[in-house]
């Protein structure tokens, strides 16, 4: 039996009132991946994460977490942890009471994990959450999510208000937990460098659409940084796409997406850094490389199942 994807989105659309936040988003995240969700501010990252954890329901399309609809399903609620961007906690609860809340509301809760982490970070258990520093609050919220021992951990900008040392701590704790339990992590950020060393899967969201999604190695292998005479651009093979190009006089530098580099030896080819790839896509919001999840769908009773083949779709629509 094929392993169910941790996260599966098919044709998801969502509107905030009249403003479309997400359009036709499809992606599939295999279990065990550490996914970096990247995108500029306002690209719809938070909306996408809220859809994953069931705080929002899609207007169109379907969201499946381990094959089931998130939000109302207790079996999924127990397996998914979420850390919202502003790390909401009850201010009047002490740290210990916050952990007690976690224990009461989650069947897989680990007291040891919570106690160990809070002890190591030196966070006083009897202090009300509202009297903690911002960084400590974040750590309490992250601990609450970790001690739930989820199969999928969704974090919205978890590192935003932590200093570099704490960032490192949080990431290494996350990685240790991932290695130990095989959990899937989805974390959003607008800082690419932050994710490059820790993530093995990338989802790039631009203006409400998934522009790029895939394992980092695949993404790297599928893109080539070319530099050479501008006159050669028109002669590039059809099997690839120019994601972004810059031209200085007769010289062109471009990011080219294709399985293999162009045959013309006059191009100087280099494997681009993930940061460069992300930047190129951000500069070209209309470009997209969508790996479509393969879906066998019964359209309506009586019709034959239709199989959508996996396509590396070149263009948006």
């Amino acid at each position: 039996m094929a392993e169910l994807p941790a996260v599966l989105l098919t044709g998801v659309g969502y509107r905030h009132g009249r403003t479309p936040a997400l359009r036709d988003c499809s992606l599939s995240v295999p279990p065990g991946r550490v996914v970096g969700l990247i995108g500029p501010n306002g690209a719809g990252k938070t909306t996408l994460l809220h859809l994953m954890v069931g705080l929002l329901r899609p207007d169109r399309g379907e969201v499946r977490i381990f094959g089931r609809e998130p939000g109302g399903d207790p079996a999924i609620l127990d397996r998914v942890a979420f850390l919202a961007q502003d790390k909401p906690l009850y201010g009047s609860f002490t740290v210990a009471e916050t952990m007690r809340l976690g224990r009461h509301l989650n069947s897989r809760w680990s007291d040891e994990l919570a106690a160990e982490r809070l002890g190591r970070l030196g966070i006083p258990a009897d202090r009300p959450v509202r009297r903690l520093s911002g960084g400590q609050r974040s750590q309490v919220a992250i601990t609450l999510a970790m001690a739930k021992r989820p199969d999928l951990m969704v974090l919205d900008e978890p590192l935003a208000d932590l200093d570099p040392l704490r960032r490192h701590e949080v990431m290494s704790d996350l990685m240790a937990l991932t290695a130990e339990t095989g959990m899937t992590v989805v974390l959003s950020s607008h800082v690419v460098a932050e994710l490059e060393e820790t993530c093995d899967h990338l989802v790039l969201l631009g203006d409400g659409r998934v522009q790029l999604a895939g394992d980092l190695d695949e993404v790297r292998a599928g893109h080539h940084a070319l530099s050479g005479p501008a006159s050669l651009v028109a002669a590039l093979p059809d099997a690839g796409t120019v994601v972004h190009a810059t031209r200085t006089g007769e010289h062109a530098g471009l990011l080219w997406r294709s399985d293999r580099p162009p045959p013309d030896p006059r191009w100087a080819v280099r494997t681009p850094a993930i940061g460069d790839i992300v930047l190129a896509y951000l500069r070209a919001p209309e470009a997209s490389a969508l790996p479509r999840p393969t879906l066998l769908r019964q359209v309506s009773p009586g019709l034959r199942p239709v199989q959508t083949a996996p396509t590396a779709s070149e263009e948006s629509r």
Binding site: L55, L77, F82, A84, P88, G102, R108, K148
Partner: peptide, 18 residues
Amino acid sequence: EHGTYRMVWTQGVTRVRW
């Protein structure tokens, strides 16, 4: 108002039960 529904509704208890 405090956004805490995002924390409590993503614990292992359904909204109805909560």
